[in-house]
Design a protein around this nucleic acid. Structure first.
Lengths: 117, 117
DNA sequence: TTAATATATGAGCAATTATTCATATGTTGA
DNA sequence: TCAACATATGAATAATTGCTCATATATTAA
């Protein structure tokens, strides 16, 4: 962190101070980033997309994704900790589905953003 | 990747196949994940939030964020490569602002999601 | 109980990443 | 041209992360 006494001429220091005062707190920024981080991996994106199409058990997800069972389970735990997916047990099998439709909205909005460009 | 001939009883194999057929392609999943990944870091979240409040030069951002100039510059380049922020040069100083209001929408939606819970 | 199936999880490893340090580029004024 | 300022960037490093392997837990059927 360097000295910043001679604020660059271009911007008034009041604006920087004002923005600094209004800026998100650390924990808020971390919370928001954590949620986006969860969506920032292709495997998890595919899992979320698959579950937006249909509730699926872990085994079916391994088929759909073409991945090992362990990797899928790890990612599902990750997503479950963030309450992005939830599970429902039925005998031996565990069915996963999206826990919240906000996630789907983020999805739709993001795809729009990408197509728009 | 293990054998998956005896599909788990719980789900019909047709559903897994159907979901697999509709699932996002690799490159789409990667594109979407890349965008979310850009939002998956507290520093970048703060940068985006700050710029949603006001156009700012790099130096002011270092003040607002309380971070080194180099770190800020690196993150700005990252965000600029993804067209999340854009720059405007004026003499020595470079002003950054959000390139697209879709990002702000994602922001709002995400904060709603977090507050909701 | 034993075997088979479905899922979960800890440890370890390779790849990625956010920051720092040092330095380069570009701009302005003296 | 030279010095000061504003920003950019390459290299190095520490921390994080996604996957695999081996194994544990849980459920069902024989």
């Amino acid at each position: 962190m360097e000295k910043c006494d001679p604020v660059c001429e271009g911007t008034s220091p009041e604006i920087a101070d004002q923005v600094k005062a209004e800026l998100l707190e650390d924990r808020s920024a971390v919370s928001i980033a954590d949620l986006f981080k969860a969506l920032g991996d292709p495997t998890r994106i595919k899992i979320i997309h698959a579950l937006s199409l249909h509730e699926l058990c872990v085994h079916d997800l391994t088929i759909v994704l073409g991945m090992g069972q362990s990797a899928v389970s790890h990612q599902l735990r990750y997503l479950r900790n963030l309450r992005i997916v939830k599970r429902r047990k039925e005998g031996k099998t565990v069915y996963y589905s999206l826990d919240d439709n906000h996630i789907e909205q983020l999805f739709v909005l993001t795809r729009q953003h990408l197509e728009h460009d």
